[in-house]
Design a protein around this nucleic acid. Structure first.
Lengths: 157, 157
DNA sequence: ATAATATAGTTTCATATGAAACTATTTTCA
DNA sequence: TGAAAATAGTTTCATATGAAACTATATTAT
């Protein structure tokens, strides 16, 4: 058998394609829901979420925990400040950065979003057993670790 | 226990977030590889892939099979024609549309990409048993079907 | 100390994207 | 028929995005 005996690749079965389609569909649905019901983008939601979860964070911490780049964080924080959902606290230690924290209003919005987010996730997983959910978690973790390795490798070699 | 006894959502464990991170990492790696080695975007690659897979297709067929919108298809086809990877055949039946097919050059590029795409996918799944791969396939199918339902539901209600 | 370098975050600029408008046909139905 | 509506695909326009330049501050090395 020659090396390219099977020269056709079925796009529908190609894992990167399937991941992209699934992720875009999920993100799109959520984005519309957050925009419609809370006036937030996905990036603003991510910032809100990590600040709610971890307390005061610097922009660089937010970037690290949300997989957003610093430009996206800068813009999302600026919009959230305009909306009154977060505020900046000047950092005593480092005049270049500040800590971002939730305002009372931001906390209220967050508290309304969380159940919606959980409900969406639950609908996605409805009928999945605990075992299946654990398998999914493992697969996601393994694939993400692999994807990171392969990404690092690409430029390295 | 009150309804919002657990008001914190761990973003790192939230399935839509994890899907997005994984998909973006995978797509980003592939996009850099295709750009660097073949001068193609992901969208151009998708068009090339479905045309190679199915033969002559109209723009609307391409859109359907790649989950791209018609604007993205129009642009990707235009670029691929400039590069000489595909050509248009006027449709006898419908003067509004044309069939897109691979050129010999496009076929050659496709034949060089396919093994790279397969290799990447295989590295992602390295060490996974057949059983695990089947589970992953099932999960992806189920989640995509659910995601579509929930997306339809959002505007409907 | 202080000049050189590094870092945090913002702004700018060039490109990517998608919704809506548009062009060219084809289909419907009065 | 032929006028109205629908459809395929392209172009336009307004917004989103990320890389690079920039500003302000902090750190390092002499």
């Amino acid at each position: 058998m020659s090396p390219d005996a099977n020269p056709i690749l079925r796009l529908q079965g190609f894992l990167p394609y399937r991941l992209s389609i699934l992720s875009n569909r999920v993100s799109g649905t959520i984005a519309r829901m957050y925009a419609r019901d809370f006036g937030l983008t996905i990036w603003q939601w991510r910032v809100l979420a990590v600040v709610a979860e971890h307390g005061a964070l610097r922009a660089s911490d937010i970037a690290e925990r949300t997989a957003m780049d610093k430009v996206a964080v800068s813009r999302a924080v600026a919009r959230l400040i305009e909306k009154g959902h977060v505020k900046r606290l000047a950092s005593a230690r480092d005049g270049r950065s500040s800590q971002v924290t939730l305002t009372r209003k931001g906390r209220k919005v967050y508290d309304r979003i969380v159940p919606r987010a959980r409900a969406y996730e639950e609908q996605l997983l409805e009928g999945f057993s605990e075992g299946q959910r654990a398998v999914l978690d493992d697969l996601m973790s393994t694939l993400l670790a692999r994807a990171r390795q392969l990404d690092d490798k690409l430029d390295g070699k």
